[in-house]
Design a binder for these strands. Structure first.
Lengths: 136, 136
DNA sequence: TCCACTATTGCGAGAACTTGCGATAACCTG
DNA sequence: CAGGTTATCGCAAGTTCTCGCAATAGTGGA
């Protein structure tokens, strides 16, 4: 079953705009911003409104094809849901980003689960701090 | 040495606006938003521009009197730097917020420090997930 | 293939900041 | 305590989303 059929089977529709957003996410291997996706799409299809891109990212996330992450403070990063999940370390001083395996974060996940009954999504937000190079 | 003197000794100035922002943060015991602070101040001093509040929060953070936290996705929460730091769990389903002692997060902090040389600020961003009540 | 239904779109307006700029007013110095 | 610096301010315009709405266009069914 194609993605289009999957989407339709959930009562949603496959539109040109939605396909373009999916394509853009496929081309961008890592986290992109909504703005960047909108920019790419509007280069070829200027009539497509940025708000449509924002709404499609949300819809595709709801449908399970896309997720988002928060790296530095205010920008949402989007990526396909089927790429391997990982954590992020972001340096507040130099802005560098580093990926870390979820395995490193799992002990905390287990602890929150057993002590608080909380199922943490530790890939969702980056961990902010000072990286090795910037530490005094 | 008063806060005003401290600020002056760093080459900055103590203005009415800055004092009002500090006062508002003192009154608000927990995390507030910039918008809420601006609303309070502008109730009495409508001529004070919201942008002044935003800039003062930034300046006061730089001076070490204020810090900010990211709870749910897009709102920045501000609070005095001298209140006890703690972590946050935010449920993505019902939106509930829960505070947890930094102690719970410390083992991860130590691990990131020794393995990556990264000094994590684990109180900066909330941990997003599904709370006990919302878990299926 | 045509139709009715309704998800989705483009657009305009609005929210929440952010930034550039000329005017103002803290503050240090003499 | 007058004067010159320059941090800070208010204002206006810009950015990045977000939302309501009427028009459009995918879809499943006839």
């Amino acid at each position: 079953m194609s993605v289009a059929d999957e989407i339709r089977s959930k009562g949603r529709r496959m539109t040109v705009q939605r396909r373009l957003v999916l394509d853009a996410l496929h081309r961008a291997r890592h986290h992109t911003t909504a703005e960047e996706i909108a920019r790419q799409i509007r280069a070829r299809h200027p009539q497509i409104d940025p708000s449509t891109v924002y709404r499609n990212l949300e819809a595709l996330e709801e449908l399970g094809y896309v997720t988002h992450t928060h790296l530095d403070d205010r920008v949402t990063r989007w990526h396909r849901a089927d790429v391997e999940r990982h954590g992020h370390l972001v340096c507040r001083s130099c802005g560098s980003e580093q990926e870390i395996p979820l395995r490193t974060l799992e002990p905390l996940g287990r602890r929150l689960r057993t002590e608080q009954g909380f199922r943490a999504d530790l890939a969702h937000s980056a961990i902010v701090g000072i990286c090795r190079e910037c530490a005094p």
